[in-house]
Design a protein around this nucleic acid. Structure first.
Length: 476
DNA sequence: ATGTGC
């Protein structure tokens, strides 16, 4: 986007002022280079979001923002039900509750370097990955219902993980007010064989080494030290979330006239929070959040089983699990008044600051771990939420590097095999069922994650804690 | 993201 069309509000904050039908301004976070590189479509989409009824304060774009379906990826928007606010299926995204989980291992770099290939092969053998991948678990009707209501709590009850895990998951591992009755039979049928699977696209499971520490005190509070080995899992609600997105998008488009909504873009389909359809979507979306939490919990169990065989001295407690595609009811202070808002984060990570009551006691003083999944070769980051983020973006930060080019372009620029070989030379062992998928996810197809998190920190959205370097990657 | 789609 053109910088001259934006008003600079800080070193990493840019405002698109209110114009025409906009109800609030749009605010884009990023340094000059990142904002200049952002697609004009992302700008147009942030402006469209700013036109929706009941939007509060501003439509935000995170530093890794880019063009998405309806809302930009990296978009944050909060709505007030009392002011005609809406909920949007495109504002959550198709991969409902896609998110990142980080596990400690108790291992050090030296424990893993000799067995990297063995570990890569074992993880690849036991973690179902790729498009249409199926797991060993088949849920019957009652189990599907219980999973959609219980989330990771249900998974732990079934033996996949421990009670201690739940404290380190958003919502204690269970999203309340989920309504499986508003999830279509097709969505449930699609999900039946997909529990405990990674999926495809940018989803992955990595064994990583803690590299540079940016804030040693917070890193210590998070239990991270240079040379520690961690496992990062990035995936979501698979076919179920996708089908819910598809189902409700269609229904929201059809119902828009009856709700008196004139949509600037069909992809922005939404429904008033105070409507039957809006409430049904919220119930279904919360069920999809539980599906994603249960899925990451089962994957955690599979990972622990692999480590028990390959590196039996490892112990894998959960550091944190956070989603970056959700709409959540939260209280935020706006103009000095505490208000109940519905915050859409699409490709944006919740980032509660120090002292927030929803954080686990052991992490509360340090702030929420904000887990940033980078691309395969470039590494990932752990950030911490700040107090300032609430006023800047309803306690949100970036979620990853963000694509720099389309999948199509990337698949023309690279071959999967080449990418795997090049990364192996750098000591990063990739296993994937899809060479084409690897090409589409080539490190060069992404923006520089370091620049993204630097901008997030400079904007005040979160604080850098540690950089993580990949050693093993199972790619969907 | 996704049994890549009307």
């Amino acid at each position: 986007m053109e910088l001259k069309d934006l008003i600079r509000r800080g070193p990493c904050a840019w405002e698109i002022p209110m114009r025409g039908p906009m109800k609030v301004p749009a605010v884009v976070y990023g340094n000059e280079a990142l904002v200049r590189e952002m697609d004009d479509k992302a700008r147009e989409q942030a402006v469209n979001v700013a036109c929706l009824p009941g939007i509060v304060r501003a439509s935000y774009v995170m530093p890794d923002g880019h063009w998405g379906y309806g809302f930009p990826i990296g978009g944050v928007a909060a709505f007030d039900a009392d002011q005609g606010g809406v909920v949007s299926a495109g504002g959550v995204g198709f991969d409902v509750s896609c998110g990142v989980r980080c596990l400690h291992t108790g291992l050090r770099r030296g424990d893993v370097l000799g067995v990297q290939q063995k570990l890569a092969d074992a993880l690849f053998a036991d973690i179902p990955a790729g498009l249409g991948s199926q797991g060993a678990i088949r849920l019957n009707h009652q189990e599907m219902h219980d999973m959609l209501v219980g989330g990771a709590k249900w998974a732990v009850r079934k033996g996949w993980g421990s009670e201690a895990d739940l404290d380190r998951i958003e919502e204690g591992g269970q999203m309340l007010h989920a309504k499986p009755g508003f999830v279509s039979d097709l969505a449930k049928t699609r999900q039946r064989p997909e529990m405990g699977t990674l999926g495809s696209g940018n989803h992955y499971l990595e064994v990583q080494e803690v590299g540079e520490l940016h804030d040693a005190a917070i890193a210590d509070a998070f239990g991270l030290h240079g040379g520690d080995i961690v496992v990062m899992i990035h995936c979501g609600s698979r076919g179920l979330g996708h089908q819910i997105g598809t189902d409700y998008l269609k229904r929201m488009v059809e119902a828009a006239p009856s709700h008196g909504l004139v949509l600037p873009d069909r992809e922005l389909a939404c429904a008033p929070l105070r409507s039957e359809l809006g409430q049904q979507y919220l119930g279904a979306m919360r069920a999809a959040i539980n599906c994603a939490l249960a899925n990451r919990q089962i994957l955690t169990h599979l990972v622990r089983a692999v480590f028990a065989r390959v590196l039996p001295q490892a112990r894998l407690p959960l550091l944190y699990d956070v989603s970056h595609n959700t709409c959540k009811q939260e209280q935020h202070v706006v103009d000095g008044r505490r208000r109940e808002l519905f915050v859409h984060r699409k490709g944006a990570t919740r980032a509660f600051g120090p002292g927030h009551p929803d954080l686990p006691a052991a992490l509360r003083a340090a702030g929420q771990p904000v887990l940033i999944g980078g691309s395969m070769g470039t590494g990932s980051y752990v950030l911490a939420g700040t107090q300032a983020s609430e006023g800047l973006a309803f306690s949100s930060a970036c979620h990853g590097a963000g694509r720099a080019m389309s999948r199509h372009q990337a698949s023309k620029n690279w071959q999967g095999r080449q990418v795997v070989d090049e990364l192996a030379r750098q000591g990063i062992f990739v296993r994937s069922p899809s060479p084409r998928g690897v090409a589409e996810e080539a490190p060069g197809a992404y923006k520089d994650v370091a620049a993204v998190v630097d901008a997030a920190e400079q904007a005040g959205l979160a604080r850098k804690v540690a950089r993580l370097r990949p050693l093993v990657c199972v790619k969907g």
